[in-house]
Simulated scan of single mutants.
Amino acid sequence: MKHIFILFFFYSLSVSSQEPISSALVTKTVLQADAFVSTNNFDTTFYIQDNVLFKNSKETKGIDIGYSNFQLGNISTVNTFNPLKINLFYKDFNTVVILDNRLAEIFKIDFNTLPEYKNVSFVSTGSDNTLWVFNQDTQQLELFDYKTNSTRAKTLPIQSPVLDIKSNYNNCWVLTDKQLYVYDYFGNLLKKMKNEGYSSLVIDNENMVFKKDNALFYLKKDSGTVAPISLPNLLINQFFVTNETLYIYSDGTLYQFQLKIN
């Protein structure tokens, strides 16, 4: 099997000389939830309440529809990048459930029962019928085809503890306690960046927003300099970014901010 070698770049994520990015409050909405997941420009909001994933949108005429599977324990993560193939990860049972846009179950992957067992700790959406999964036993990121139960690609082992992963159809971002790694669809390492204390991230058109303590920072695509985002004093329970619009869930209120990116 041929190996493709790609030169990658090393960046240090520095905030020392970057001017803060300003933000303007657009709206704030009451939202009673245990956890906010995501929203978009079409007024579709996903959130978790009492271990049930809820969706509120115009197509549901303001009525919240929900999905629950209490036999699988607590929902660990939800990825709504592909609204036609939403994935719910139940870490305690090593299982992923795929939902359609009506929150109807269309596929279930039990990693315990695969011919090649996988001990999965993180999951994110891939293209077609694939998921990015982090195999805790091998310390490798894998692109897994859940229709054929086969691994299309895998990375070299990642040496430091993984904090978060995010993806789109082409790339996957893996945040560890020491580095941020960016991989392509074939498992090749494209970029490597030092982590300066960030605990989670969100991807917006390959731009990145990081959380550190109770503050957010913005890294523009192909830039090596992180800029702090200027925000009012809010407790950031969860956050999400789409098309330079930032959503922050704080103590029962969902805030929408417009970021002013130069």
Rank of each mutant, 00 (worst) to 15 (best):
L25K: 15
N69T: 06
D34H: 11
F240Y: 15
N40T: 11
I75D: 06
I109D: 00
L156R: 09
I248M: 00
I86N: 03
G187F: 10
L141V: 03
Y67I: 12
D128Y: 03
T95L: 13
V226S: 08
Q139V: 05
E206I: 01
F10D: 05
W132D: 02
I86P: 04
Y255K: 13
I158S: 03
S230H: 15
F239T: 11
N214K: 15
E244T: 01
V209P: 04
L201N: 02
I4A: 04
F134E: 03
D213C: 07
N205I: 00
V241L: 09
F240Q: 08
E196A: 14
A227T: 11
I203M: 09
N188D: 11
S12F: 15
K55T: 04
P20Q: 05
N40C: 09
V97R: 01
L13M: 15
N82W: 12
P83I: 03
V226Q: 09
K28Q: 15
G62W: 00
K147T: 07
F54Y: 14
L246V: 05
T29N: 03
Q136I: 12
Q139N: 12
T95S: 14
F9M: 08
P228C: 10
N129Y: 14
P232R: 10
S127R: 10
Q136W: 14
V182N: 01
N79F: 02
Q32E: 03
L180N: 01
A104T: 08
F107G: 00
N40F: 10
N74T: 03
N135A: 06
E105D: 00
N94E: 09
T151Y: 10
L189V: 12
N195Y: 13
G224S: 08
Y90P: 12
L141Y: 00
K194D: 06
T80W: 05
I21C: 09
S22D: 10
K212L: 11
L201H: 06
K147W: 06
S250C: 12
T125G: 01
D177T: 00
S68R: 13
L189Y: 07
Y185I: 05
Y181P: 00
